[in-house]
Nucleic acid binder design. Structure first.
Lengths: 385, 385
DNA sequence: CTAGCCAATATGAACGATCAAGTCGCCCCC
DNA sequence: GGGGGCGACTTGATCGTTCATATTGGCTAG
């Protein structure tokens, strides 16, 4: 259906001929020109099997010739579906998850459009304000559903949206809600930090620290647990090498300084955000150390700054394009009513190794560990689902 | 009108009560409950002056009580206007103009919403594809107009859109078209680099170089001319201190290295992009020099990386919020037909001084220049229009 | 030969708003 | 006292689709 309604520009390849607004063809004009009725034209697009092949041919020919596309408003009015997805535009904090949500929006638009949907964005300052805008969009029947990003503990939005009977999918797990009534897609942060630990262990590191966020942040804790799990599984003595503070470059620097001052300092740091990682690199610089040579650092999110810094920052990259694909697929399934019970989808990120992670200095820790690593390719597959 | 149609959630302050889709009130329900006709309800929202104060009061009361908002589809079908603005989502190249277009989209959504409009975004890979999507959106009557970003020489989009009779406004001047038929809003890049030169001259620099893009890029040339104009006006001997190359960190580094190897090297560099500036800083580091102490560097765009780098990068910041406001205002004026002839609007950016620009070392250049500087505030005003 | 059925297409109604043209009082003025 | 005008509200028509229900013609079975 989407395919039939979203043909190329009329007249085949080459730049589309511009059509002034006052002479956009309606279904009636197509019908008259093809010598059939409205409904037959409608069927040609929405239920081609109902037409005799030759009739179908003729009608499609006229549709293409005139460049007819059904009016969104009229169709929306009749069918009570807008073919539009609403999505809050998230603030792009420079150091933090900045680039991620930007990538998400791009991928979301692509995925939606390929299914015949459009994306409507809005910018708000708080969750409460988001609810207000969603409410407005729903009352005006401007969207069919929402993509919700940045879920967190105590998030009031899912509950509200559920109560409103709106279709929506969350990017992010429903932290704190063991039995959520809605669908979600998320990235397995723990798997990411775990792979980071394995990556570093594979480079010979055994004292691998972790810069995490204060307890109580969903994604932060998740990523922290991945580090915990992996170091424990590898039998690494790292339990004291943990620093926790609010996200940010300054925190990262402060935390790293503390850990580096320990009698037995870490030789590598897994950070749950790029901002923390940048701070850690700063702390190293201050001591005349070089990230990736003296101490390795791995960030999280692979934000734009990661590849710009020097040394370039190794970071855990999220499969955002796959996330967007899944978000759209799940949301549309729910809108169409195909999907009755909430679906869950957890995708794996992978480590992008750059200069900030390098081999452990021989003898620096007085001990080497042998580890078997999963091949990076096994992780990368997730992206090209 | 917009105000009347976009009231708060029903029931005054506090979180809006969710309304399931199957019982969203129509104008007819409001009419019945208020004991008036459809049209009177419509008038209450669109032409309040036509109602007797007490009737108005009563109708508005019911509207608020039921949380009625006119259906977008129905209204759009009848009035032939969608109250939606289309906008291409631009690729956010990490080092370059990345953050700028992200900020623009945020500001655009805010500005549009405050006028009762929504923003529909799409992501495409080329100008031709953009035309294709615009054509599709227009044929389906999905938008009233477009905001066009990233204009450049030989841009085919304005011509196409004009031919289509579509309302649109460009962010960016119509480079190469002396007599454009469309409206635009842009930032005065030359004024930005000029202010950067004055800023540096005020710090005592007289050998101020420029890292620019190859000739032929609209914004690049514009910014370069600002440097040219300012250094000439101040009588600074800088004409040889110019490097031009494609945008990027590597180019910036290479260009800076060349200039720093001159017999009389620059003591300060004005760069037409942050990416070039980052490259320049790298070149300095390689020579053991510190930006802002030994050689000053000023970038352009104030991208997120600027404040994350060390030393933090001085950069020319664009008044994006004001740009967005103007874009929306001009576009809506054009859609409403108020504005017949194309309007033009050029806003001034300003220098955000950080650590990468500092006083010239005494005696380093053998010559000091006295300059009167415009107060930074005069520039800053532009933002809060 | 005709009722019954199916495939293919056509016709009327509805979606929910606004526009254009009513209707109904009321007051003013000649 | 009646026509005219105006203010306040109502009623029919319409925007461009799709849904639900005809209509048509041909073919089959009884």
């Amino acid at each position: 259906m989407a395919a039939a309604q979203r043909g190329r520009a009329p007249g085949g390849p080459g730049r589309a001929r511009a059509v002034p607004r006052d002479k956009r063809p309606t279904i009636e004009m197509v019908a008259k020109r093809a010598g059939v009725s409205r409904q037959t034209v409608s069927n040609a697009a929405n239920a081609p099997h109902r037409l005799r092949p030759e009739t179908l041919q003729k009608v499609l020919g006229v549709i293409d010739e005139l460049g007819y596309r059904p009016s969104k408003a009229a169709r929306s009015l009749r069918t009570r579906s807008t073919q539009v997805i609403g999505c809050r535009l998230l603030p792009s904090n420079a150091g933090g998850t900045g680039g991620v949500l930007d990538r998400l929006l791009h991928a979301l638009c692509d995925a939606a459009r390929s299914k015949g949907y459009d994306v409507l964005t809005f910018s708000v300052a708080s969750d409460d304000e988001e609810i207000e805008v969603c409410d407005d969009l729903l009352r005006r029947s401007a969207v069919d559903g929402f993509v919700l990003a940045n879920t967190h503990y105590g998030d009031v939005r899912p509950e509200w949206l559920t109560a409103a009977g709106v279709h929506f999918v969350a990017f992010g797990r429903p932290w704190g809600d063991a039995n959520p009534a809605h669908s979600w897609v998320d990235v397995d942060g723990a798997a990411g930090t775990s792979e980071a630990v394995h990556h570093l262990a594979g480079l010979g590191h055994s004292r691998i620290g972790c810069l995490a966020l204060p307890e109580g942040s969903g994604t932060g804790d998740d990523r922290f647990h991945g580090w915990q799990r992996a170091t424990a599984a590898l039998g690494l003595p790292c339990s004291t090498l943990v620093g926790r503070a609010e996200d940010g470059i300054h925190s990262g620097k402060a935390l790293a300084e503390k850990l580096l001052s320990l009698p037995e300092p870490p030789t590598a740091l897994v950070c749950v955000s790029d901002a923390l990682a940048v701070g850690a690199v700063r702390a190293l610089e201050d001591r005349g150390l070089v990230a990736g040579r003296d101490v390795s650092v791995v960030g999280f999110d692979d934000s734009p700054v990661a590849s710009v810094l020097r040394p370039r920052l190794s970071s855990v990259r999220q499969p955002i394009e796959a996330v967007a694909q899944n978000l759209v697929e799940v949301l549309l399934a729910e809108i169409s009513g195909t999907q009755r019970r909430p679906s869950r989808c957890l995708l794996s990120p992978w480590v992008v190794a750059r200069e900030s992670s390098g081999p452990a200095l021989a003898g620096a820790t007085g001990r080497t560990t042998l580890v078997t690593l999963p091949t990076p390719d096994s992780y990368r597959k997730e992206q090209t689902r």
